[in-house]
Amino acid sequence: MSDWAVIGHDGQCHRAFALSGATLTHQGSGADEAAALAGLGPMPQLYRIGEGLPDTLPCALLPGPGRGLVGLTQDSPADVIDGWTRLILLGFVARHPNWDGVACVLSDTLNHWVHLSADEAVSCQSFLTPTLISSLGGTTPPDSAAIADSLSRPERLAADLRRAQVTGIPAALTGHLLGAELAAARPYWLGQNVALIALDGDASGYAKALAAQGVPITQQDSETLLPDALATLAQVLGFTD
């Protein structure tokens, strides 16, 4: 087996992983690549996540031979998914082979809804909901009545947000934004299996709202998917016996 390392940016910081074949041995993080790699020691081969021109959807989640794990792009509607999110999705399909449904990857700034089939990313739709919640001062848990209201009447979002602001109910701000996202993402969850992927598996607001619509839900912690993703990359890149 070969010793090698993977490095990428998870949206918060640079993260590096040292592997022996498909086995994760060490990891580090830091404000830049040097800091993230500092504790790993010398590595004969370094594989970068997200470096290079993105692949256009639909496409396989696995990279082509000799290629880095780049991001994903879509022409219509225009969208871009970063390489780190693709890594998380790769870990999900490694753990759930032949998954046919939708994965919603939640982060601090963006939510990505991705239709997966036969280990391919077919289409996607991303939302700025977390950024809007943060900028408007929304709080969690979201107000369930506000979710239901904006899910059924998303055209009133701007007015509903103002009402929540005036009445001083920050949980309603969150609920209205979440409900509007679910209304817009309806083609991605209606009649689909949905996997909610979030740090620590914390997607309770989305899970509760979708369960109320009768949607079958799987919840995953994004961190626990990384070893599966890295092991899959090791096999594809020939770092295992």
Rank of each mutant, 00 (worst) to 15 (best):
Q27I: 03
G28E: 02
G28Y: 04
S29Y: 15
G30K: 08
A31R: 15
E33F: 02
A34I: 13
A34L: 14
A36V: 15
L37W: 10
L37Y: 03
A38L: 13
A38W: 13
A38G: 05
L40E: 03
L40T: 10
P42Y: 12
P42V: 15
P44S: 13
P44H: 13
Q45H: 07
L46H: 00
Y47N: 07
R48N: 00
E51I: 01
E51V: 11
G52D: 12
G52C: 07
L53H: 04
L53V: 08
P54E: 01
P54G: 03
P54C: 03
P54A: 04
P58H: 04
P58S: 10
P58T: 11
P58I: 08
P58F: 02
C59A: 04
A60K: 06
A60F: 06
A60E: 12
L61H: 00
G64R: 12
G64N: 02
P65N: 11
G66N: 05
R67C: 14
G68S: 15
G68I: 04
V70H: 10
G71D: 06
T73Q: 14
Q74I: 07
Q74F: 10
Q74H: 13
A78N: 08
A78T: 10
V80E: 15
V80D: 00
I81E: 08
D82S: 09
G83N: 04
G83E: 02
W84R: 11
T85H: 02
T85C: 00
R86G: 09
L87E: 06
I88E: 10
I88V: 15
I88C: 09
G91P: 06
G91E: 05
G91A: 07
G91I: 08
G91K: 08
F92G: 11
V93Q: 01
H96N: 07
P97W: 15
P97E: 15
N98G: 11
N98T: 03
W99A: 12
W99F: 15
D100C: 12
V102K: 01
V102Q: 05
A103W: 02
C104T: 01
C104Y: 01
S107N: 01
S107A: 07
T109W: 01
T109V: 01
L110W: 14
L110F: 13
N111E: 02
N111S: 12
